[in-house]
Design a protein around this nucleic acid. Sequence first.
DNA 1: CGGAAGCACTGAATCGGTTCAAAGACGGCC
DNA 2: GGCCGTCTTTGAACCGATTCAGTGCTTCCG
Lengths: 334, 334
Amino acid sequence: MAGAPNIREVALRAGVSVGTVSNVLNRPELVAEPTRERVHAAIAELGFVRNDSARQLRVGRSRTLGLVVLDVANPFFTDVARGVEDTANQHGLAVILCNTDEDPLKEASHLDLLAEMRVQGVLINPIDTDGRIAALRDRGIPVVLFDRRGDPALECSVAVDDVLGGRLAATHLIETGHRTIQFVGGPLTLQQVQERYEGASAVVAAHDDVELTVLTTTGLNVAAGRAAGDRLAAAGRDALPSAVFCANDLVALGVLQALTHAGLRVPHDVAIVGYDDIDFAAAAAVPLSSVRQPRQQLGRTAAELLLAETTEAEHEHRQVVFEPELIVRDSSAR
Amino acid sequence: MAGAPNIREVALRAGVSVGTVSNVLNRPELVAEPTRERVHAAIAELGFVRNDSARQLRVGRSRTLGLVVLDVANPFFTDVARGVEDTANQHGLAVILCNTDEDPLKEASHLDLLAEMRVQGVLINPIDTDGRIAALRDRGIPVVLFDRRGDPALECSVAVDDVLGGRLAATHLIETGHRTIQFVGGPLTLQQVQERYEGASAVVAAHDDVELTVLTTTGLNVAAGRAAGDRLAAAGRDALPSAVFCANDLVALGVLQALTHAGLRVPHDVAIVGYDDIDFAAAAAVPLSSVRQPRQQLGRTAAELLLAETTEAEHEHRQVVFEPELIVRDSSAR
DNA sequence: CGGAAGCACTGAATCGGTTCAAAGACGGCC
DNA sequence: GGCCGTCTTTGAACCGATTCAGTGCTTCCG
């Protein structure tokens, strides 16, 4: 009796069968008005709460959805998460947020857990597309990639054209007169980082007099950016690039802090362009130029694709690609 | 056969009973080496993944823990979440992150869902301590309050001394010569906001020549801060307070943006002190003075208290209170 | 040689909802 | 009165892993 009355006790109290109680909960339109009221009264009196694992066991799937991100502390991902949550909640689903810290082992263990939970689906910004994602799919759990393009034969994905984003940033820097550009970000195994670099690289290749170098970081956070900034500053004024293009805004903020700390002025000594256009970019010490992505929309669309895949009889995988937009602020003004 | 082999099929393939398979999974030391290997082989060949709802149903509780926060987009909460996640993962628990947006209705619906899921416990920064939290406790689900003190008879809690935080901020502003101080934050029903104001108020009361006024906001985010800043700026230069103390850093960043946009200089025209000392405070246009809280530690401690409550036979509720620390930066420099 | 103890394994009962075929109740109509 | 259709309710089977009393076997000891 103690903490957990079950559906049988409710049935007993309301003087009906368990089947009827279940119907009141799930298809109330099948139950006659007075009966329904008696059942509701019994539920209230006993403080009954449906045991979701029992329900899940019978129905075969849960009412949750997994969201696997690289770093919850990155506002880009929390904005995406907001979009996912809004859409999921509208459909009565809860979101399980998993943080991988760019660590394949953590990613793997989170995916295992989500598989055991029989989530309805997984939204993931994968680190490496190893077998584990395929394994999920084989088990019938739909997977939607976000912030990364997938294989149209296998999965849906929602991405932003990162190559274009890289082009926008590089074009802007070249047009404002910069000739030595430093790309800062990593690890390069991350598709986002790779493609942002590629985009910049393609533009630079078309200009004989412009030079692009790469400084890889071990992560995409403020600390990594600060470390990179320190290295740039330590190399001496002569070795300084005239502009830095960072793989995301956190790195850019870190670089900005380190350079400022070393007595260099942004954008006078070095210009900076970031990526993501998180809200804090505009509020930075030197307002940051950045490549904007439709963050919440990314999340909403990803969740919608997942829901479509679970409900549609004949599902065709879709690859949605949004266009990024360059926002120019003080950090790269001439 | 398709997507989901169960424990029976594994048993069949390995030539053992289901009980043995279960033992291999849960208490491998009870099973002889060669048998264990055969079972593992069968699991691998079939790609078997344990159905967690069946396990939960039998065992009675899940391996998850609910974390209910006011706003995932606030770095303060993501830092707390990191702490919670670290500790939870170490103990094999997954974290379900719920966002309430300071909306009691959303809070209630999330708590209902967590109750249905039979989570091991709930960590919450509550909006209003209405009956729903008590209802959870009655059902045997431990609740730990964080960033807020609780009733020692009922629950554990982890908080930071917000009254002290308010005192620190106000004392600092008074000592640097400010005589008209504006408190910005809200809603005042939030205990944090209330107490930060109280602390400041107590200090001001001891100084006849200092005036403290309140501008309440509807939320604790950048947009609310910006709106408040606009109102301050619109009131005209003469009506301006000489310093603003904000209930958190997001509000402070919003106020900073609005004031700067209106052509006012910080700290020359108006000084600003925030609260939380999120990472972005130091990187702001004018580096923000702020009252620092041990964010990750708050999360870790909260999770530990919860785990203690679920494992200890005789549990005594504890109220942990950390001390905040004032970090002075440019925004309140004289 | 008998009995006890230890070990590895078995298999049925169990957790608590959901589902669906079937039964029951009632009214309308010929 | 008998038949049919509609609406409501019933109750047992079922989902899949866990658990524990119990079986069969071996070893040890007096």
